[in-house]
Write a protein that binds this DNA or RNA. Structure first.
Lengths: 253, 253
DNA sequence: TGTTGACATTGACGTTACGTAAAGGTGTAA
DNA sequence: TTACACCTTTACGTAACGTCAATGTCAACA
């Protein structure tokens, strides 16, 4: 089946302007242009648009969607499974928000009391608690109380956008790292780019940056098996590779 | 409890810039300004912010949120009940999207087949708030030309199936209306059935429904000769009859 | 066959809801 | 008093389109 802009727009529930914009930014180009200059979309484009809309629904920026779907290592099925997980998380959040509104109604009718904190539950993701639970102790032990406090304070002040940025940075690191690992050279451009991205990630998480801490964290990735497992899950040896790249990047050992 | 921008921002999971912006556009002004020029928020502001975020979560524009929460007739509890309904609808949509992604995974593994149309189920949101029309500028000032334009724009993005449903509804309304007109009683069962069908038709066309808009549209059928001509083409007086039936149905005048 | 009307095209400027940076004042703990 | 995390206003930047405007294409109908 072939589609013109309007037909595809109707099918997907989006405007023709949106399709033209997606062409313009290179995120979804038509299969071909006919003799009159019309955009003609085919089966592949329909499927890609579906992927794009899944990402969009999850709040990913078009910039990031572009990087994801145009990446040579993009795995459609894997992406769908990620969508599934994210959507289930979103459902949990939505249910929290529904509980919130139910509680607020009960409160306004005088049946229960509610703290100010409760009034905003379900609006923001609970990434903080998870992070604290998972890695809090270790960071606290190795890097001291202060760093953790700062880290927490920063996290709390983050907006939804920041979280998204952080997540996209995360995926970018993963991708760059995967590519870099194939070259086998931590000092190469890709390896150094991964280190650079990782620096950005740290800066966002901690609200500040220092080479010492960066190098230290890199070593921890190798020393702590949970971190190692995380980085090695696709390719064993990745954690060591990242450490080496960072040590070269920071010029520290 | 009193809050500065940052404290309230952390509580609600939004940035300080957002709070300053909300002050700027007059949607949420602080309870007072202290001697140093700092914004200080109190209990009322916390509650209003919660309301604002509920509306924002449902995709209502700040412009409309402003009209809603600043309206003298604004009923907080009623709004919360509306949020509850909308959030449940949103949950239904989200569940449809989850089914979609599950089906897409099954398809990519070759277990089932999927039509192009199915691939986009759950994306289309018709979750525009009722109150948007209720307090929207267009409806209050002139429900004429602009409303019609908007309505037409919506048509363009409809699927074939929706369009067919709409047409069959249209004929049903015509038939019921013709029958009802013979009884001469807009409040009778046939008159009210016509009004009910008309409500369904509106809901489909606009993607949402409100009594006010319904009653307003009914009046427009009488005021605007193009609409009057359409309804009166078989039986003069039908437009007035329909308006009366709808005004009784909605309980509005 | 000419005209209509729904389609398509490429600019190009407008809009919303903030982000981000600059330049500076405030409060308190070391 | 020095540091630092707060706060302020002013102002320009941005993402993802919406919304014209000007113009070309195509099927259908009088």
């Amino acid at each position: 089946m072939e589609y013109t802009v309007q037909k595809l727009g109707r099918l997907a529930g989006i405007s023709t302007r949106t399709l033209r914009y997606y062409d313009e930014i290179g995120i979804l180009k038509p299969a071909r242009i006919n003799s009159s200059g019309y955009r003609i979309y085919g089966q592949q484009e329909v499927d890609r648009l579906q992927q794009i809309l899944f990402y969009r629904e999850l709040g990913v920026s078009l910039e990031n969607i572009k990087n994801i779907v145009l990446s040579p290592s993009f795995d459609g099925v894997e992406a769908l499974k990620q969508h599934h997980i994210k959507l289930l998380e979103k459902k949990v959040q939505l249910e929290a928000l529904i509980v919130n509104v139910e509680k607020t109604i009960a409160m306004s009718e005088g049946r229960i009391k509610m703290s100010d904190k409760e009034k905003f539950e379900g609006f923001k993701q609970k990434l903080i608690d998870e992070n604290e639970e998972k890695y809090g102790k270790e960071i606290r032990e190795k890097y001291g109380e202060e760093t953790v406090e700062k880290s927490n304070a920063y996290f709390k002040n983050m907006s939804r956008e920041d979280f998204e940025k952080l997540e996209s940075l995360s995926t970018q690191i993963q991708e760059t790292l995967a590519e870099a690992f194939k070259t086998g050279d931590p000092s190469g451009p890709l390896g150094q780019k991964a280190a650079e991205l990782h620096k950005q990630w740290i800066s966002m998480c901690w609200g500040h940056y220092s080479k010492e801490a960066h190098a230290g964290l890199a070593q921890m990735y190798v020393d702590d098996e949970r971190f190692t497992a995380y980085y090695d899950k696709e390719q064993p040896g990745t954690a060591v590779f990242l450490r080496d790249a960072i040590h070269i990047y920071t010029g520290m050992k």
